[in-house]
């Protein structure tokens, strides 16, 4: 089957075996993202947003969990691929930006060496070339002193800077899809805006599709083209972002929207 979707998830189910009983974590999820589109994934904690991300990346432990369904990236089925090939897809074709940037880097190596290592794992660049490319893309995400950032250890940079380094890596490798799991939750509002601006640049200039997980409807309103609302392992609403804000169909979506409006009214 050929498909034009960048990401196509069909009937993705995850169940966990708990002493003979089989508990569902995800109940047959369908998602599609087109090229250069941003899909916002919202839902309360425990609703299965992060499990969905891990399942797309094929990172779930197959021993304890039963995973069914299909995940296609540009038409290529990811679910049955051997580990060796999946490892080449992670990073190269699916980039990730996680909530806590401090955990995404090894504290004992400089940011530059980790950047260069990632680039060279996925390309045939020489060290010099990789370093030059890394510095160029750090400048592109608005980090003013790329040379200093390259020499820094993760703890010497702020959360917002590290998050932008993650985006810079994605800019170099130009993956088809970036999974951003709560990318700005740990940041203050000024840094949040800068990170979102760079994510948007990634989408407009490189045509990267983005799966954006967030509980902040402000982030969704700013970034997303379509939105999927999750509750208890199911997608309860999947709509265009304007439709979702104007005509929320599901009770949970309404509750989310009201939580925001109440804050505004009191102000």
């Amino acid at each position: 089957m050929t498909s034009t979707h960048t990401l196509e998830v069909r009937g993705l189910q995850v169940r966990v075996n708990d002493g003979g009983k089989s508990l569902p974590l995800l109940k047959a999820i369908d998602l599609t993202i087109e090229k250069g589109q941003v899909l916002g994934l919202v839902g309360e904690s425990g609703s299965g947003k992060s499990i969905t991300c891990s399942a797309i990346l094929q990172l779930l432990n197959r021993r304890g969990l039963e995973v069914e369904g299909s995940v296609r990236l540009n038409g290529r089925q990811l679910t049955k691929l051997p580990n060796r090939e999946i490892r080449m897809i992670r990073g190269r074709e699916i980039g990730t930006i996680m909530q806590n940037p401090m955990n995404a880097f090894t504290p004992v190596y400089t940011v530059g060496s980790q950047f260069v290592e990632t680039l060279r794992t996925h390309s045939k660049l020489s060290k010099m070339q990789a370093r030059a490319q890394a510095a160029a893309s750090l400048a592109e995400v608005g980090l003013s002193e790329p040379a200093r950032v390259m020499k820094s250890y993760p703890h010497q940079l702020s959360g917002g800077m590290l998050q932008r380094v993650m985006i810079a890596i994605s800019m170099c490798l130009q993956p088809a899809l970036v999974i951003a799991d709560e990318p700005t939750t740990a940041l203050d509002s000024v840094n949040q805006l800068q990170v979102l601006r760079q994510l948007d640049k990634l989408r407009t200039e490189y045509g990267t599709s983005i799966l954006l997980v967030s509980h902040d409807l402000g982030v969704i309103a700013r970034m997303a083209d379509t939105v999927a609302v999750m509750k208890a392992g199911e997608i309860v609403e999947h709509a265009d972002v304007h439709d979702l804000f104007d005509r929320p169909q599901h009770d949970y979506t309404r509750m989310l929207l009201q939580a925001r409006l109440r804050g505004r009214k009191d102000a």
Binding site: S189, V190, Q192, G218, V219, A221, R222, A224, H242, R260
Partner: peptide
């Protein structure tokens, strides 16, 4: 700077 970093309430306000 803080005020301008506030995210929109609605996608039409982007």
């Amino acid at each position: 700077r803080l005020v301008s970093a506030v995210l929109p309430q609605h996608p039409s306000l982007r």
